[in-house]
């Protein structure tokens, strides 16, 4: 699995050859730098650590400064590990190597995007778990239109089952959108245009996997 780290820029739409409008998300991906390489002998598995987005030196801990120095690069904000990393070119992935979106993806590819969804706060069951609600506002209903209904039986089992869908905190969790199509690549600006939506707010980090 290869991939790259990106930043969500925003959404727009483009037109395909049939004249249909396609909603797309623009992601600024890379250039990422290889900061660590793991292999089977020393670590038990193969992996590559990528880093993305400049960070001020004064905001970086001494330990991390040393880590980035080993790869001959400046401190970065986001660091992600990819297992069994493979890129198009043949040369071995080495420390300090710069990886661009066009090295990993080409137009027409399908990718998975992982991000942290927008926080929604404390939400009821209708929004959080797609419950139907009561469905009618008359026939004896009084302020119960979005209520969850019964949460279990009576003296048996005398308790509420674990994991029952109830109201609570929604959003702010790791979400993976699978099979998004790469509509277009902009190699000069390191931009990727993918069809569909991507989890998270603008300027939040997105991990793109192939």
């Amino acid at each position: 699995m290869s991939g790259i780290i990106g930043k969500k820029i925003g959404m727009t739409s483009v037109y395909d050859e049939n004249g249909n409008s396609v909603a797309c998300t623009l992601i600024q991906a890379g250039p990422c730098v290889v900061t660590h390489v793991k292999n089977e002998e020393t670590d038990g598995y193969n992996a590559v650590q990528l880093a993305f987005d400049e960070k001020k030196l004064k905001n970086t801990s001494k330990a991390l400064v040393g880590h980035f120095k080993r790869a001959n690069t400046t401190p970065k904000k986001k660091v992600v590990e990819f297992r069994d990393f493979r890129v198009e070119f043949e040369e071995a992935v080495s420390l300090g190597l710069e990886i661009k979106p066009s090295d990993v993806f080409k137009e027409g590819d399908f990718l998975d995007a992982i991000g942290t969804s927008k926080g929604k706060g404390f939400q009821g069951v209708v929004k959080r778990h797609n419950f139907g609600g009561v469905g009618e506002s008359t026939h004896g209903q009084h302020n119960r239109e979005r209520a969850p209904g019964s949460i279990g039986a009576c003296s048996f089992p005398s308790r509420v089952f674990k994991g029952l869908k109830m109201a609570g905190r929604m959003g702010g969790s790791r979400v993976k959108m699978i099979n998004l199509k790469v509509v277009k690549l902009f190699p000069e600006d390191n931009l990727i245009l993918v069809s569909g939506s991507v989890p998270g707010a603008k300027n939040s980090y997105v991990v793109l996997e192939k």
Partner: peptide, 8 residues
């Protein structure tokens, strides 16, 4: 709107 979207 972001400057980068204008590229698209």
């Amino acid at each position: 709107m972001s400057e980068l979207i204008k590229i698209v």
